[in-house]
Nucleic acid binder design. Structure first.
Length: 290
DNA sequence: AAGCGAACCTGGCTGC
DNA sequence: TGCAGCCAGGTTCGCT
């Protein structure tokens, strides 16, 4: 479930359960996900206090008292669920199916405040790593990573500079984490639609005016999605099992063949494949050569 | 060097 | 009902 808004939603959900607490027990149930777990993963966590929980692009970063950072990526299907240890459940609490054990619960963190944090990932494209806090920006995960779209760096000038002379399609440029880090297929489609930009147009063809507009729209779409608790496509987006609702706001994503939402537009949402991934757009509202 | 397809892995849905 | 085929929110690798 994870583009930037979903990861931020998870971060906000994990924060009260993890920050200020210590790991009392860590169950690592397999040797690897997309990447091998680091050496002595559980032992390096147990006893450590989580001092803060941050996010960089689609990565979660738990700051440990040891000076290491627990880096977590959700891949395509990673999800966290927070429950209270034991069988404790609030009276009347909705019993989500994920409240039970699942074959894909790969990691369980037991914390000193009684919280239990379960990482579930059917496809195992996610991973966890432990890296030193000092110099983390040059570790394998973050070296060369692009700007943070909700940070101060994203501007029209930045987009113009990053896309300058690129003949790669706008869609691909926006998905390139080395340029802007955190966008994925959904929010790129939504941002291009809102900006009225054709997904196949060369990235380097953006005028400074359109670049500025696009930068603002990217920020706007992401902020709206975070406020909505992210998008829920195939399972819960939030760590208590509840759903995000930004998917109800999609204007083009996964709406192939449905009417364009632009008032007065008679066209329907089209789908094309770029770089092996579906792009949803309206040819009338996002014409070529704009 | 950039750009593209394939690969990693499982599950859910569609259609025959 | 069964099964094949296709699709999925990401990233990385290897080949033009």
């Amino acid at each position: 479930m994870p583009e930037l808004p979903e990861v931020e939603t998870v971060r906000r959900g994990l924060e009260p359960a993890m920050v200020g607490a210590r790991f009392t027990r860590v169950e690592q149930r397999r040797p690897d996900l997309r990447l091998p777990f680091p050496e002595r993963f559980a032992e390096r966590l147990v006893g450590q206090e989580v001092q803060g929980l941050g996010r960089r692009a689609k990565y979660l970063l738990a700051d440990l008292a040891s000076g290491e950072v627990l880096v977590m990526h959700l891949g395509m299907s990673g999800r966290f669920l927070v429950t209270q240890g034991g069988a404790t459940r609030m009276p009347g609490e909705f019993h989500h199916e994920h409240g039970g054990e699942s074959a894909h619960d790969h990691v369980v963190f037991h914390l000193s405040n009684g919280a239990k944090v379960t990482y579930n990932d059917a496809r195992r494209f996610g991973f966890m790593d432990l890296v030193p806090r000092a110099g983390i920006e040059t570790c394998r995960h973050f070296d060369g990573m692009g700007i943070e779209p909700l940070g101060n760096e994203l501007s029209g000038e930045a987009v113009t500079r990053l896309f300058e002379a690129k003949r790669t399609p706008l869609k691909a440029a926006l998905l390139d984490q080395r340029l802007i880090a955190g966008l994925g297929n959904i929010y790129v489609c939504e941002a291009l639609f809102r900006a009225g930009l054709n997904p196949e147009a060369p990235a380097g063809s953006l005028s400074p005016e359109k670049a500025a507009e696009l930068a603002g729209i990217i920020r706007e779409v992401l902020q709206e999605a975070v406020a909505a608790g992210g998008s829920t496509l195939r399972d819960h987006a939030q760590v208590d099992g509840s759903l995000g609702y930004f998917q109800h706001t999609f204007r083009v994503y996964d709406r192939e063949g449905e009417p364009c939402v632009t008032p007065g537009c008679a066209n329907t949402v089209a789908r094309l494949v770029q770089g092996g991934r579906s792009t949803f757009y309206c040819l009338t509202c996002q014409p070529p050569g704009e």
